[in-house]
Amino acid sequence: MNVHAILAIYRFEMARMGRTLFQSIAAPVLSTSLYFIVFGAAIGSRIAEIDGVSYGSFIVPGLIMLTLLTESVSNASFGIYFPKYAGTIYEVLSAPVSFVEILAGFVGAAATKSIVLGIVILATASLFVDIDILHPWWMAGFLVLTAVTFSLFGFVLGIWADSWEKLAFVPTLIITPLTFLGGTFYSINVLPPFWQTVMLFNPVVYLVSAFRWSFYGNADVSVALSLAMTCGFLLACLVTVWAIFRTGYRLKP
């Protein structure tokens, strides 16, 4: 195991993110605050409690997941796409590092950044609404699992993309709609049965539901199923990355 290499990639990536620290923290904090002002205070006051939780508090776990997902995907995809685009990837590819080590460095850094953001948003949210965390360890566990899984997904995306358009395509056209329809702003139990079934095909529903359970103790779908779905997706991403490095897809001609 080339630990020096993992650390080198990790530090390098963290330093790159550090240079844009202000933008990367300010933007999500601002947008979350806007959500609270609009949904929490303005509209939320007219919405009844959901499962005994005020609407403002209800949306907090979903909002954190929303940020976690989009940030993980965009950080990780940019992290690997940029060196590919700039050509600096040659150094990593010609170094004595295995794909597991490359992954650990890049994905570890991207996940770290989105976890930090998730915590910042949680802190911001606690300024606006009351938040209970019934199962803090599960909460932390889901936070890390989601960040890692979607950073891995972003990594695959960054390797697949061969243009800036493609890099932006998946987050805008797939991730954002899925997160908005993923039960962040409502419990899927309020939907007609048909739409409830449709929603079960949206992986984000499972993430948000389990994460909200770790806060308030009630879930739209079973927590075990959520966990299994997330781990399944993680595994699928891992296999994809393994195949990418095995075949040199988009990395080695």
């Binding site: 080198a8 150094e91 590092v97």
Partner: peptide
């Protein structure tokens, strides 16, 4: 420093 680390 990055290069050196990368090579273990």
């Amino acid at each position: 420093r990055f290069s050196r680390g990368l090579f273990g």
